[in-house]
């Protein structure tokens, strides 16, 4: 970490065009070490494009992208990963048929030399995978078991643990809780909190205001490709956040119609 007071990631007035389609039209946000920034937005607000831009899949058309206070241009997801920005995708994080160990070290297998040959160090890999699982709180199971036997929440946690283990400074979590039940969600949220305590920056993408409010320090609301603003937790109430995200009035009307159940 070069400059202690510079945000880990900062983007200013980011614009991304796909031909005539303007997917992002002026996005600004920043995330600091030891902070959870929640990125809220309804479907079509540009969340996916923003994630892909931050993780190096897309190149921004305009705007500044700063890492540790320095301008940067990623050519590939690999570059972003090397800069310490790890993205955990909702459904593409793990391969269900492969063991937890094999998934954990996929693409970054630990090697040991035997004479002139290099083999995968399975003993070490199993040991680390088991330790990391215990840290999350899944310590009953064998790391050689297939990931398919883990619950959705556990899979997300293992994917996050993997990113942390490999030295991520910023975690981008793409709707980690959207497909999960209540208990699974609380497990993931707890783990996000734990990761924050370690001093990592977390960008938590969601459209569930409750989940966001539970762990977030600051909230950036995205609507129609623009950021509507960033609020600290003390500045904004849950309901206001919900209204802001949904574009205001319409949802309030709906809420009145349904007598407050939304």
């Amino acid at each position: 970490m070069s400059k202690s007071n510079a945000p880990l990631i900062e983007v200013r007035d980011l614009v991304k065009n796909f031909g005539p389609v303007i997917a992002l039209n002026g996005v600004s946000l920043s995330v600091n070490a030891g902070e959870v920034l929640c990125l809220l937005g309804d479907n079509g607000a540009g969340k996916s494009t923003l994630i892909k831009t931050l993780s190096g899949v897309h190149k921004p058309s305009q705007g500044d992208f700063l890492v540790d206070g320095e301008k940067i241009a990623f050519e590939s997801p690999r570059d972003a990963l090397n800069a310490g920005i790890a993205t955990v995708y909702q459904d593409l994080a793990m391969i269900p048929l492969m063991s937890i160990t094999r998934n954990f070290f996929m693409g970054r297998e630990p090697l040991k030399r035997v004479g002139p040959l290099k083999f995968m160090d399975m003993g070490f890999a199993d040991k680390v995978a088991r330790e990391e699982m215990v840290r999350i709180g899944i310590d009953i199971r064998n790391p050689q078991q297939a990931v398919g036997t883990l619950s959705g929440g556990e899979r997300q946690c293992v994917a996050i643990a993997r990113a942390v283990y490999f030295g991520a400074k910023v975690l981008i979590l793409d709707e980690p809780t959207s497909a999960l039940g209540v208990r699974q969600t609380s497990m993931v949220l707890k783990y996000i909190f734990q990761v924050r305590q370690k001093g990592l920056g977390v960008i938590f993408i969601t459209h569930n205001v409750r989940h966001a409010h539970a762990v977030g320090d600051r909230f950036t609301v995205l609507n129609r490709g623009k950021t509507l603003g960033t609020y600290a937790k003390s500045e904004i109430e849950l309901d206001d956040l919900q209204n802001l995200m949904a574009g205001g009035r319409e949802l309030q009307d709906l809420s009145a119609e349904l007598s407050g159940t939304v």
Binding site: P77, R78, L92, I95, R102, M106, G107, R108
Partner: peptide
């Protein structure tokens, strides 16, 4: 990994 999920495998390099 390539056979299990090519996209997930590409994502991790």
């Amino acid at each position: 990994a390539s056979g299990g999920d090519a996209k997930a495998a590409r994502n991790v390099g």
